[in-house]
Amino acid sequence: MGCGLYLVVPCYNEEEVLPETTKRLNDKMERMCREGLIDDGRSKVLYVNDGSKDRTWELIQQIHRENPRFTGISLAHNMGHQNALLAGLMTAKDYADAVISMDADLQDDVEVLDEMIKKYMDGNDIVYGVRSSRKKDTFFKRFSAESFYRVMSAMGVKTVFNHADYRLTSKRVLESLKDFREVNLFLRGIFPLIGYTSDVVLYERNERFAGESKYPFKKMLAFAWDGITSFTVKPLKAISVIGILISFISLLFLLHFLLTKLLGYTVQGWTSVICSIWLVGGLQLFCLGIIGEYIGKIYGEVKQRPRYIIEENLLDAAEQEI
C-alpha cells in the first residue's frame, strides 16, 4: 500500500492559474495511485488561501465540492507565503505520512513527485527539490539568486543551493518543526537545522503558467534580509569589526596630524575632513539600522502573536478523525 500524501499549495490571488493547477495535480495524483505510490483514500491536495483579494477561495470551495481529493483552508488575512505554508504543513501533518509543499503557479515540475515519493520510501525524511539549472532566468535573476545562496552560506546559514520551497517532509519532521516557535519564519533555513536523513531531486523549473509573480525584486530582497537576520548575528559582529577598523584608521590620521603639527606644517584639507565626517556618520546610521532590525525582530518574537489564523477549514469531520 502506498503512503498517505498531502500536497500543500499556498495560494495568493491565483484565480487565473488554479483551474490548470488542479487539472495537472489531479492527473498526477491519479497516476501515482495507479502505480501504488500513494494511498488514494488518504492522499489529498490542500490549498491554503492566504487572504486572497480575488476569487481564489471561491474557486477552492468549488473545486472541493466537485472533487473531494482537493480540500483547503483559508487564513483570516494575508500572512505572507512562509506563514501560509506553515499553516498548511501544520494542518496536513495530522493526516498524512508525508507532505510535499509546492507553489500554485506550476513552475515546480509535478513530474518529479514520483521520484520524491520513492526517495521517501527509501528512508529519506526530507527530499529537497533542487533546480538543475537557471538557463531560463535572466542574467540579473540568475546572478541575484545565486548571490543570495552564497551570501547566506558566507553568513553561516545552512541552506540547500538552488532550493526554494519545493520539498517533501515526513510526518516526524513536521512534528519537530512544530517545536520551532519563531515568528520570523525562514523555512529554507529551518529544515536543514531539523536534520534527519535527506536527499535531493533535480528538476527544471518551468515558466509561470499565468498571473504575476508574487516575489518582485523588492520582496525578494526583503526575504533574503529576513533570512540572514533570522539565522545569524554576523551582521552585528561586522559592526564591531567596522568600529575597530575605523578607530584604527582614525588613530593613524591622528598620529599623522600630530607629526605635521610638530614639524611646523600647516594642516590643509577641509574637504577631506568633511568627507570623513559624512562617511563615519553614514556608517553609524547604517550600523544603527542593522541593530534596529535585530531589536525589531526581538520585539516581534517576545509578543508571541499567532503566526496564522485559520478562518475556514474544508476538511470535514470524517477527515479530521483519520
Rank of each mutant, 00 (worst) to 15 (best):
L5F: 02
V9G: 06
Y12T: 03
Y12G: 04
E16T: 10
E35T: 00
L37V: 02
D40M: 06
D40R: 14
K44H: 15
K44I: 11
V45E: 03
V48S: 06
N49T: 09
G51I: 06
S52D: 07
K53L: 14
D54L: 05
H64L: 00
H64T: 15
H64F: 03
R65V: 08
P68L: 06
G80S: 08
A84E: 06
A87V: 07
G88V: 07
Y95K: 06
S101T: 15
S101P: 08
S101V: 05
M102E: 04
Q107H: 00
D108A: 13
E115M: 09
I117V: 15
Y120H: 15
M121F: 11
D122Q: 15
N124I: 04
D125L: 03
Y128Q: 03
Y128I: 05
S133R: 10
K135Y: 11
F140Q: 09
K141Q: 15
F143Q: 04
S144L: 11
S153D: 15
V160L: 01
A164I: 03
A164C: 05
S170G: 08
S170M: 06
V173H: 01
L174C: 07
E175W: 01
E175N: 08
E175C: 04
E175M: 08
L177C: 06
K178I: 05
K178A: 13
K178G: 01
D179T: 12
R181Q: 10
R181K: 14
L185S: 01
F186E: 02
R188F: 00
L193Y: 00
I194L: 14
S198M: 02
V201G: 01
E204V: 13
N206A: 12
E207L: 05
R208C: 02
G211D: 08
M220W: 10
M220G: 13
L221T: 12
A222P: 00
F223R: 14
W225C: 03
G227M: 02
F231M: 11
F231E: 04
V233D: 14
P235Y: 04
P235V: 06
P235I: 07
P235D: 02
K237H: 12
A238K: 10
V241Q: 07
I244D: 13
I244E: 13
I244K: 14
I249A: 14
S250E: 08
L252E: 06
F253C: 13
F253Y: 11
F257E: 13
Y265V: 04
S272D: 10
S276C: 11
I277G: 06
W278V: 15
W278C: 09
V280K: 09
G281E: 05
G289C: 09
I291N: 01
Y294K: 00
Q304E: 14
R307Y: 02
Y308T: 04
I309K: 10
E312C: 05
A318Y: 04
E321V: 04
